[in-house]
Design a protein around this nucleic acid. Structure first.
Length: 713
DNA sequence: GGCATGTGTATTTTT
DNA sequence: TACACATGCC
């Protein structure tokens, strides 16, 4: 079958796409067309008669999966390629556990919590156990989650994890162990899984006799993208999933491994041939993305890394245009230079959509964001604080969560404290009265894990909710009114009216009531929440608008549970996902953390803060492995560029770091641009050379002068 | 016990 | 700058 689209591939790509059975490792350098190759492979399998529903495509983000499946569908002319199971490891784990979870002791109504929830739970335990008492400093909740998550994902003993990655917490080992113990216990009792549990339970699933075979037996082919960023649990899951057929294809680039902090290990990709005997290895080295000078500079940067599959990217795209190293006086000059360069390229015909600004840490773009806003240059920012992590969104979601999973004590805790006069202590008391989780005591209160629930019939309301509606606990006077509002809201969301007495077996009556849609439920909760929001926040108007966005998103979901889970497993990654998309065809610039830029490409790329201490980050230079990862990060950033690469180096930093009062330290150029690498750049200083003068009659003015609406109407 | 206010401190990347 | 924690007032 000589499909036309196969002829578009180079020999290595074609070999990978048409590979027969057995394990295949595709080592694919940046920009070598791995997405295309993988999509072609999926298409090939389908053309060969493989049932698309029996193909599992694991990617790093859902967006990546959607893109690949979209392409495959294009190739196969719509032969049901969309039946391919595609998504992240975590989302796939969730789907499988919804079906098979009971065989590993999971309740049917489990909910998934994000890192923020996990931190809150840690914090509760931290307080309950009184670990932080005395004048000792004890690790903060976010640190606890990091340590826990790393330990679990790397499957390394806590003491060693602390030694190696969190040496300043070494003395608190025992208390941490105690907290982690309680943490796992409470999650179980509350029918809640965190991100790590999704992987752990999936792995457990593959090991259960019969069930494991059934789960693995759903798929005949497994494809994994970005394999360099998987951890050892994920590798084990894959081994379990393809024991029977060994039809596994992994694609990755060890030079782009940037998630070691999440316990990803490049051992997975380096040792793949050992772990899967009989592996075919295909290496893709021809880069179709960038001009050769950009690759030369990128290769030079990488040449200093220690262990990696040797590959030298090359391109047919010869060019005399070297990447640019922009020296700037300080950050504000950097900002000015970036804006000016962006507009210059824009005038040259490169739309904003084809330009991106990349940086190490989310806040590195703060200064630029202000400037862009001032100049009316539209942009979307990826990475950093998310919509979903803001307090008001979490508040509203917590209301939905208690209805979805009434044993989710953490959400109760959050919801109850929205009411005036209810703090941690009172909330705990109310939760105990509702029977919605037994706080710190008696681990057996609600049975460990897989309790069978008699009240799971459609339309049924499980006990703590029924208790809230029928036998509400007493609350402080100051909270009475809102508490009633809350009960009304919960009732409305479950399709019940308050105050009507029901028989003990009122199920038939309840299931008859019309269940509001997810969006309607949000509306109900929002009206309960509005006065609280106005009371709490100065900027309540902005926040309330966010709730409307939430309602918009919810329209796409038929079930409340799916909505909540989707939001935690695949949260909107930028403001663009939220804006009701009237701006879809608008041209906008991309600002992104380097991590979030993975897999993307732009004609023009600007990399900010190429100073030692920023890239590599001060916080990561403790050991050689850390520096290596930062180097790969810089490499990832550079290789996103097709035609123009700008690296900005501000010489001077003003901020007072860590109390040291070096109010204006001089920075060093990032160590990754050592002499030979630096020589591959052309250096410019941010002195106006005339080339970049903006012509007031053209594009620049479109952004910079926007006041005429004030008098022309 | 709740809540407002003050003080000191640590500060990345994300499913 | 946000967050943990202490203090003091209702």
């Amino acid at each position: 079958m000589a499909q036309e689209w196969l002829e578009d591939l180079n020999p290595q790509q074609r070999a990978a796409a048409t590979h027969g059975a057995g394990p295949l490792l595709i080592v694919a350098g940046a920009g070598t067309g791995k997405t295309k190759t993988l999509a072609c492979r999926v298409a090939c399998l389908i053309e060969r008669g493989v049932d698309p529903g029996r193909i599992l495509l694991l990617t790093f983000t859902r967006r990546a999966a959607a893109e690949m499946i979209g392409r495959a569908r294009h190739f196969t002319e719509g032969k049901a390629a969309n039946k391919v199971w595609g998504g992240t490891f975590h989302a796939t784990a969730n789907r499988l556990l919804r079906v098979y979870g009971s065989s590993v002791g999971l309740p049917a109504d489990f909910t998934v919590m994000d890192a923020g929830d996990a931190a809150d739970l840690m914090n509760m335990i931290r307080n309950d156990l009184g670990v932080a008492k005395g004048d000792r400093r004890f690790p903060k909740k976010a640190t606890l989650v990091k340590v826990y998550s790393y330990t679990v994902n790397a499957q390394i003993e806590l003491t060693r994890v602390l030694d190696r990655h969190f040496p300043w917490c070494g003395d608190d080992r025992d208390a941490m162990a105690q907290i982690f113990d309680e943490y796992t216990r409470r999650k179980r009792r509350q029918h809640v899984l965190d991100y790590d549990d999704l992987l752990l339970y999936w792995r457990a699933l593959t090991a259960v006799p019969r069930v494991g075979e059934a789960v693995a037996g759903r798929f005949d082919h497994i494809l994994v993208d970005e394999y360099q960023d998987t951890n050892s649990i994920q590798a084990e899951i894959l081994r379990g999933m393809c024991k029977a057929h060994d039809n596994i294809v992994v694609v990755g680039d060890d030079a782009q491994s940037i998630y070691a902090f999440r316990a990803a290990t490049i051992r997975n990709i380096l040792d793949f041939p050992k772990q899967f005997p009989g592996t075919t290895v295909v290496t893709l080295e021809q880069n179709y993305r960038s001009i050769q000078p950009i690759l030369d500079a990128s290769n030079a940067v990488m040449s200093q890394a220690k262990e990696h599959y040797t590959k030298d990217l090359w391109s047919n795209r010869r060019s005399a245009l070297k990447p640019v190293l922009m020296s700037c006086e300080d950050e504000s000059e950097q900002t000015a230079a970036v804006s000016r360069n962006i507009l210059a390229h824009f005038e040259d015909g490169v739309p904003l959509m084809q330009q991106a600004v990349l940086f190490r840490a989310s806040h590195h773009s703060a200064d630029l964001e202000v400037d862009l806003a001032r100049r009316n240059i539209p942009f979307h920012k990826f990475g950093g604080l998310k919509f979903i992590e803001t307090a008001h969104i979490k508040d509203v979601l917590a209301c939905l969560r208690i209805i979805e999973n009434p044993y989710d004590q953490l959400s109760w805790f959050r919801v109850l404290q929205l009411l005036d006069g209810i703090g941690p202590k009172t909330a705990q008391g109310i939760i105990a009265e509702l029977g919605a989780g037994a706080g710190g005591e008696s681990p057996g209160a609600h049975g460990g894990g897989g309790r069978s629930r008699a009240d799971c019939a459609p339309g049924a309301i499980s006990t703590p909710i029924r208790c809230l509606l029928d036998r509400p606990p007493a609350v402080p006077q100051s909270a009475r009114e809102r508490f009633t509002d809350l009960r009304k809201a919960v009732a409305a969301c479950t399709g019940v009216t308050l105050g009507r007495p029901r028989g003990a077996e009122g199920e038939s009556e309840l299931s008859a009531a019309r269940k509001p849609t997810v969006a309607e439920q949000i509306e109900v909760v929002a009206s309960f929440y509005t006065p609280i929001c106005k009371n709490r926040y100065e900027n309540s108007a902005v926040r309330l608008r966010d709730l409307e966005q939430l309602e918009q998103i919810a329209r796409k979901y038929r079930s409340r549970g799916r909505f909540i889970t989707a939001l935690t497993l695949d949260p909107p990654s930028s403001t663009s996902d939220l804006a009701g998309k009237p701006s879809l065809d608008d041209d906008y610039l991309t600002l992104s953390t380097i991590h979030s830029a993975k897999g993307c490409e732009w004609t023009v790329v600007h990399i900010l803060h190429a100073a030692d201490g920023m890239i590599p980050s001060d916080l990561a230079t403790g050991d050689e492995a850390g520096v290596d990862e930062e180097r790969r990060l810089f490499y990832v950033a550079m290789t996103r560029a097709k035609d123009h690469l700008y690296v900005y180096f501000p010489h001077r930093y003003y901020h007072q770091r860590f109390g040291h009062a070096d109010a204006h330290g001089y920075a060093q150029l990032t160590r990754f641009l050592f002499a030979e690498a630096r020589a591959l750049f052309v250096e410019r200083t941010e002195e106006f050379d005339g080339d970049y003068e903006t012509d007031p009659t053209s594009a620049g003015s479109r952004f910079e002068v926007r006041v005429d609406h004030l008098w022309k109407s």
